[in-house]
């Protein structure tokens, strides 16, 4: 197991390095002059020159890459061109909204999906199954911004349980969690619907396996065989989807962030792209790549915890 984890860590670091090279090349080296791109067509020659100085564009490519990389390792992502503040702080603020929101939404979605999938599979083609899968179909089909607005109408405007938007900061964790609750529900609904369907079909496949029949021949009831034998075997595809969903939730929550006026990563990226602030764009992309690679690593570790066959063999 230690071997396996070490192998995975090596792979993770290698992927990060490759990703940083690709991002650097795409945004800085390939298409013309980043300074000209950031300032637009009608910029003066002095302004361009000043920005080039600031960006360090007059240095060789390798030196610039080295400076960028070593800066990132020390937590220095450079100064935002539009905001005129360190990018690291900018991203950290947004991450404190987006990361808890993604974890919140994924937790909700898992807490809903696993029991629903389990019940549906246990009562295959029964009323519970048909009802749950019908709801899941609707959950996938509903646009989440529409659902988010519905939540605002019911719980903020109507019942006044939650505020309709904005984020108060983490000084009061209770208020912060309350502010994230409606967005998390809006994000969780489609994810839970997908996850429940995967859980159900994966369980149904597992229930057809020979070892479930063996378990029944040992004297386990249907439910015992389902929980003790089928469930763990059915988790592998569920974990895969959860990993993909987490990466998506971190960066793809932009619509929901807009509906609820949340200062999240998605909005930051959107604003930075509109303002042609390449320094922020580059850093946000790097952070997201980092998150995806770390999640992939965690998913691999989770596989190995679930399935002993994956603990040895390939690194």
């Amino acid at each position: 197991m230690t071997r396996f984890v070490l192998g995975r860590v090596t792979m993770m670091l290698a992927s990060l390095l490759v990703a940083s090279i690709v991002i650097f090349l795409v945004l800085e080296v390939l298409p013309g002059d980043p300074a000209a791109f950031m300032l637009g067509l009608n910029s003066s020659a002095e302004a361009l020159q000043a920005l080039r100085e600031q960006l360090g564009l007059n240095q060789p490519v390798l030196a610039r890459y080295g400076a960028w990389l070593s800066g990132m390792v020390r937590g220095d992502f450079g100064i935002s061109y539009t905001y005129r503040v360190p990018v690291a702080g900018l991203i950290a603020d947004r991450l404190w909204v987006s990361l808890p929101l993604a974890i919140y939404a994924l937790t909700l979605s898992t807490l809903i999906a696993i029991p629903v999938g389990l019940l549906a599979a246990a009562n295959r083609n029964g009323a519970v199954d048909l009802g749950a899968m019908g709801l899941a179909q609707i959950g996938i089909a509903l646009p989440n911004f529409w659902f988010a607005m519905l939540l605002v109408l019911v719980f903020s405007v109507g019942l006044r349980w939650f505020s309709s938007g904005g984020f108060p900061g983490w000084e009061d964790p209770g208020a912060a969690m309350a502010a994230l609750t409606l967005p998390a529900i809006a994000l969780a609904l489609p994810q839970a619907s997908i996850l429940a369907r995967i859980m159900r079909s994966s369980l149904i496949d597992a229930l057809e396996e020979d070892y479930v029949r063996t378990a029944r021949a040992k004297g386990l009831t249907r439910t015992q065989a389902l929980i003790r034998h089928a469930l763990r075997n059915a988790l592998i595809p569920v974990i895969t989807i959860m990993g993909l969903q987490f990466s998506f939730l971190l960066a793809g929550a932009i619509i929901i962030e807009n509906v609820f006026y949340l200062p999240g990563l998605g909005r930051l990226a959107f604003q930075a792209i509109s303002a042609r602030d390449l320094i922020v764009v580059r850093s946000v992309v790097m952070i997201l790549v980092f998150a995806v690679i770390v999640v992939t690593f965690l998913v691999d570790i989770a596989y190995a915890l679930v399935d002993p066959r994956l603990r040895q063999g390939r690194p």
Binding site: Y211, R213, T214, A217, H229, N233, V306, P308
Partner: peptide, 11 residues
């Protein structure tokens, strides 16, 4: 059962 390869729970 017949299939020893699949009759046991792999996990």
């Amino acid at each position: 059962f017949q299939e020893p390869m699949t009759a046991l729970n792999p996990l």
